[in-house]
Simulated assay, not measured.
Amino acid sequence: MGIKGVSSAPGDFIYFKSQVPLHRIPIGTKQWRYYDFGPKVVPPLICLPGIAGTADVYYKQIMFLSMKGYRVISVDIPRVWNHQEWIQTFEKFLDAIDVHRIHLYGTSLGGFLAQLFAQHRPRRVKSLILSNSYLETKSFSAAMPWSPIVSWAPSFLLKRYVLTGIRDGPHEPFIADSVDFVVSQVETLSKEDLASRLTLTVDDASIGPLLLPDSSITIMDTNDYCAVPLQLKDQLNERYPGARRAYLKTGGDFPFLSRPDEVNLHLQLHLRRVGVEARPDLVQIASQGGGSDSGPSEKKDERDGDDTHKDDNEHTESSPSESQVSPAPESSESHSIDNQLLNNAKACYLGNHGETMVLVIINKILLQYVQMICVSLMLSMMDASDSTHLLSLIPDR
C-alpha cells in the first residue's frame, strides 16, 4: 500500500507528551505501558486500542476529559497469546494500580477485548463504549489462513499485513493525519507485539451474554468506512438493542484522532449517563516550568530493547495523584508585554473563556512582531540619519 509512516508527531501530541507521564510497570512476565491522568477519586475510563494502536493514540481524549475532571487510563495491549491470558493479565493490572470498578472504551480489537473482560469479570465493568468493534473472530481467522504460523512470521510481513487493513487512497485532511499518526505508532511495535495482537484477532472466540445492561453500553461507529466489515458491526448492534447509539458521519478507522471533538462529546455524555461524576475542582493548573518528571521532546519508544529503557517524561508509582497541566516554561526575569499576552492567552484557553479573546491576543502579538521586522528591514536599507523617525513606528513594549 502507499501509506508510509511518519516520524514527526502533531504539535499537540508533543505538548501532551511533555505534560502527561508515561507509566511502565511489570506484572509477572508482562510489561504494561500506560497513561493515567486525571483525579484519582473519579472512576476511570480505560481506553483499549485496536490492533494497530498504542496507548498514545488516545492522547486527545486524555487531555480533553482530564481537563473536565475525569480520570482516563490508556493502555498498550500487552504480549498475551490467548483470550484467557488477556482476562487474567488485565485483572492483575487493575489490581496493581488499585482500580476495582471501571468503564471501558474499546475500538476494534480493543472493543472485543473489553466485551470479553466484561463477560468474564462482570463485577468490575460498570459500562462499555464500543467503537467499530465486533462479537466474534471467525471471519478474521478465515481471512488469514497462515494464522497458525503467525509467531514465526518476520516483522516486516506482520507490519505489512496490519497496514493493509488500513484503507489507502485519498482522504480528507483530518482522516489522513489520523492514518499517518497510527502508521507511525505501528512502526514502534515489535514483532512480538504484532504477532500477539494478530493471534488475539484470529484466535477463535465469540462474546457470550453479558450481565451488563444495554443501558450501560454506547455503540459509537463511523458511517463512512472502517476495516471491520459492516456485517460484523450489524451483529454487534443486534446483540445490544437497548444500547445508546452514537453515529459519526465520517471518521474512518480512527475517529478518536480524526473526529476528537465529536468522540469526546459522546464519551462525556456516556460517563454522565452512567453516573460518573467529574471533579473539575481537583484539576490543578500550575506553572511548574517542565519539572524533572517531564521532558519537552518526544522520543520513539524502544519496545524491542531492555525493559529498563525509560521515556524522558516517564513516571513511577510516586507520580502526583491529581491531574496537573502546566503551561510552557517561562523565564522568571521576563516581564515583557509579549509574555504577559501569551500567559493571558493560555489562561483564557484553559479557563474555557472562549476562542475570541485568544484570537484577539494572538493577532496583537503577531502584529507587533510583523511591525518590528518590517522596521528592521527598512532601517538596514537606509542611512542612520534617515532612520530616526522610523524608530517611532516600533510599538511601545
Rank of each mutant, 00 (worst) to 15 (best):
C47W: 01
C47T: 14
L48W: 15
L48D: 10
P49L: 03
G53K: 07
G53F: 03
G53Y: 05
T54Q: 11
T54P: 02
A55Q: 09
D56Y: 04
D56K: 07
V57S: 15
V57H: 09
V57R: 11
Y58V: 02
Y58S: 10
Y59M: 01
K60G: 01
K60F: 02
Q61M: 06
Q61Y: 01
I62Q: 04
M63Y: 00
M63N: 01
M63H: 01
M63F: 00
F64Q: 11
F64E: 15
L65C: 07
S66L: 02
S66A: 15
K68V: 00
K68L: 14
Y70T: 08
R71N: 06
I73P: 06
S74N: 09
S74L: 05
S74G: 11
S74T: 15
S74Q: 13
V75N: 08
V75A: 08
D76G: 04
D76M: 06
R79C: 14
V80W: 04
W81Y: 14
W81A: 08
W81M: 11
W81D: 14
N82Q: 12
N82Y: 08
H83P: 07
Q84H: 12
Q84W: 11
E85P: 03
E85V: 02
W86F: 15
I87G: 10
T89H: 07
T89L: 00
T89K: 02
F90W: 11
F90H: 08
E91F: 00
E91H: 08
F93I: 08
D95Y: 10
A96L: 09
A96N: 12
D98Q: 15
V99F: 02
V99I: 13
R101E: 13
H103Y: 09
H103G: 02
L104P: 06
G106M: 05
T107G: 11
L109E: 10
G110W: 06
G111H: 05
F112Y: 10
F112V: 00
L113M: 10
A114G: 09
L116A: 00
F117A: 07
F117N: 09
F117M: 08
A118Y: 04
Q119K: 13
Q119R: 15
H120I: 00
R121D: 07
R121L: 07
P122Q: 04
R123G: 14
V125W: 03
I129C: 10
I129R: 03
I129K: 02
S131Y: 04
L135M: 15
T137A: 12
K138I: 01
S139W: 12
S139I: 11
S139M: 08
F140V: 04
S141Y: 07
S141D: 13
A143G: 13
M144W: 13
M144Q: 10
W146I: 09
W146K: 07
W146E: 14
W146R: 07
S147C: 04
S147Y: 08
